[in-house]
Computed example of a mutant assay.
Amino acid sequence: MNLKPVAILLNLLLLTIPASASYAGDKPLQTVIHDEHHGGLDFSLGDSKYSGELTYNKSYMVNFSVNPPAGSSIKVAKAYVYWVWSKKDLEGTYPQFNASLTSSGTAVPLPEGHMYTDTKGFVSRYDYFSGMNTCDLSGKISKPGSYSISMVNTDKNGSTFCVQGIGLLLVYENPKLPIIEYWIGEGCDMLYADYGITPEVATTTTYFKGDINLDNVTDARLTTVSPSGGYSSGREARNKLFFNEKTSSIPVLGDIIQLLFGSGKSWENIYQTNETVQVALDEKPVADYLEPAENFASIQDKGDYLLATNAILVLKFKESESSEKMSS
C-alpha cells in the first residue's frame, strides 16, 4: 500500500480543520430548540449597556418590558448573559456570579444555566475568556410587566469580568396567531480575521435542519446576535452575514455540506456596536431566500473582531387544512 497519498490527505485535513479554540469558525452554533405551533417570538436586549470591570460583590442589571400579544401564554423564556475579559491577574478564567430576576419588587434567584466559551487559542498575554451564559426563565416570566435581570460577581479570590449585555428570548403560544416554526441556535464562536486567519476561516455556519413547504410560508425572519461586532478593533465595522449563500470556502465541520444553493443573500457590515452598547442585534427578512430543506446562515469576520452567539430562524405560515386541525 502506498502511504504517501494518505499522508498528504491527512496533512490537508489538519490544515483545513480549525483548532478547538481560536479566532477561526470552529465552534458553530447549535440548534437547542426546534418547534412549531401558533404563536410568536421576541428577542430583546432591554436597556443593556457595557458594565466595565466587575470586581467582587459588584453588580450589574438590565431592565426589560414584557408585552406579549393579548391571549398569549409564554412557552419559552431564556436569558443570555454576554461577558468578556474574564480573568484573574493576567490569566483567563471563567466568571463566577449569581443572577436573579426581579418583578413587582420581588427578586428570585436564577439557576445556573449552560456556559459557552471561546478564546483566541494561542499562547500570549491577554488570552482572556469570552462567552455567553444561558438561563431558563420559563415559568418565572409568565405575564406582562417590567422585569429586571441582575447579577453579582461572587468570586472572593479576585477574578473579574465585564458584561456586554443581557438578552431575553420569549416564545409565545396563542391560538389566534399564525403558525410559526422556529430554530433557536446558541453558542459562542470568537471570530477575527487576523494573525494568519483569513475571513473565509473566520466564518461560522449554523444549519436549520428540516424540510419546509415554501408554498405555505408568508414570512421568514433571521435574527442574529454578535457581541463586540464592529467595535473592538476601534475601526469601522468589517463583517458579513450570509443566508443560504456559500462563502468562498467550504465548511468542514458538521454532518452536512449544503453549498449547492444559488439563490441566497449576503449583507455587509451589519453588526455595529460602540463603547456603550457592545452587543449587536440584527434581524433580516429572508423569505425570498429560503430553500425547501437544510437552510443555513454564516457569520464572517473581516477584520474587526466579533463573537457569534445567537442565530434564530422564524417562519410564519398561512392557514391550511392541516394547520386548522392543529388549532382545533
Score class of each variant (00 low, 15 high):
T102Y: 03
D304Y: 01
E91F: 12
V279R: 02
L41M: 11
F161S: 01
G196T: 08
Y305I: 11
N295W: 06
D42P: 04
S86G: 13
E181S: 15
E294M: 14
Y94M: 14
Y80T: 00
Y289G: 01
L260G: 15
Y94P: 01
D118S: 12
N295L: 10
I184T: 07
G25Q: 08
K78F: 04
Y60I: 06
Q164H: 10
G167L: 06
A107Q: 13
V152A: 06
Y172G: 02
M151C: 07
M326F: 14
D211M: 09
G303S: 11
G105A: 10
N174H: 06
Y172T: 07
Y182K: 08
D47E: 09
S228G: 02
Y23L: 15
I180P: 03
Y195L: 05
V279Q: 00
L290H: 07
P109F: 08
D42M: 13
A287S: 13
L14A: 14
S232A: 12
D89C: 02
E321F: 02
A7N: 12
C162S: 15
L281I: 13
Y23W: 14
S298R: 14
K78V: 09
D118N: 14
S249H: 04
Y60A: 04
V62E: 01
F208T: 05
D215A: 15
A21H: 14
S22Q: 03
E91G: 05
